[in-house]
Write a protein that binds this DNA or RNA. Structure first.
Lengths: 222, 222
DNA sequence: TAGATTGTTAATCGATTAACAATC
DNA sequence: TAGATTGTTAATCGATTAACAATC
């Protein structure tokens, strides 16, 4: 996997993965009119180590104070800025099957700063139709559109067999980051970031848990 | 997060996450009529360390041989068995919004051994209708149905505010594993496994990458 | 002030990788 | 046999956690 920024990024991927949980939790506190919060409190709520929380939050420079903790509102703003939710990024999606359609019509991405501007597919029967408010365009138009509109994110929801080809096409379209929903290890140049949404792994982990539970019944009932 | 099986599971989550990539790659080789494969070869293709590959595959007891490597077909079968793709697990999904609808209609889960049998929602307007071939039922019927049918997996696609309540309801319905698509750290008993599909984190990571690229242009162009 | 809390340095833990003997 | 490859033990690396001085 490509490193986040080559060298001096101080935030690990693991830390970055925790940030949305912090943000979501802090927002829920904000609704209850709480003004400040301490790291042990956050740690307790999210089942983390309090030092880890402080270390994570330290990168935001939100300046916690001994005795009182962090100012909730500042922490929320800083997290949103840091995570880039304030910048809107535009993306294209390739592969308008069931999953592709789902992501195209999902409104939830907007609040995280992602705007999918169109879907692309080779299937001529669906080209020209729309999903939600998003248009489905032929794959042949992708390169031109991405370059012209300076789109930087590509979402891959094609079958495994075609994933690498589509990936290459996206890179040729000057995409800089790829969100990959296929269970394929993509080969990309160093400067392209790939984030794998490994649903197959998730299912495997769930399934494994159930198998082990069935085979060794009651072994972990307290 | 709940440990996979409490104590003597030898496979780490990280290793488990790599398995779907092995499986997918090996299947692509199988199509090309290749009969056996070595760990250095797999490592090269998936950009991993060869020792890591051997260590991962060792848990399958597929018995690689010096000089020739592993028998491809056996490796594939063993991986599928290990990952539980041969067991079909049944699941219910709660929260039939855009994302929920998408997952309900997605056919891709079947080949990973997951069968979503129905969707549940509180919105009376959509209750009674269907998505794909899946029925949408009122939340009030969930507990009874899950218990009667011995459903073991619950998928959460409700908004963050409701995620914990739904989680509690699922546990009360005797669900044993939860696939959580909300950006919420769920609180569950030790024997319940939660797998978070952290889309918010993925977006944050993509976004962060783009921001850093913009701010320090050409710093990582080779 | 006394005590809670931060931020940082050092120790620990777990996972990855290197080294190597065994073996086909 | 010679060489490629496995499987395992030891070293390294990175992330988490514990210990603690600084501070409000």
């Amino acid at each position: 996997m490509t490193d986040l920024d080559g060298n001096h990024s101080v935030v690990s991927i693991h830390a970055l993965e925790r940030f949305p949980y912090y943000l979501n939790y802090l927002k829920s506190l904000d609704k209850e009119n709480i003004k400040s919060i301490s790291s042990p409190f956050i740690a307790k709520a999210l089942d983390l180590n309090e030092v880890q929380v402080r270390k994570d939050l330290a990168v935001l420079n939100s300046g916690g104070k001994p005795k009182t903790g962090y100012v909730l509102e500042k922490l929320i703003t800083d997290l949103e800025t840091f995570l880039g939710y304030n910048n809107v990024s535009e993306a294209v999606l390739v592969g308008v099957g069931h999953l592709g359609k789902a992501l195209l019509s999902y409104k939830g991405f907007e609040k995280y700063g992602l705007n999918i501007i169109a879907g692309f597919d080779i299937n001529e029967e669906i080209v020209g139709t729309g999903v939600g408010e998003k248009l489905i365009l032929p794959l042949t138009k992708m390169k031109n559109l991405c370059r012209r509109m300076h789109i930087h994110i590509g979402i891959i929801t094609v079958p495994a067999e075609n994933a690498q080809d589509i990936c290459n096409l996206l890179i040729d379209s000057e995409i800089q980051a790829i969100w990959n929903f296929s269970p394929v290890k993509l080969t990309v140049p160093d400067n392209i970031l790939v984030r794998n949404e490994n649903m197959a792994a998730s299912l495997a982990i769930l399934s494994k848990h159930l198998i082990e539970k069935t085979h060794r019944p009651n072994s972990d009932n307290k």
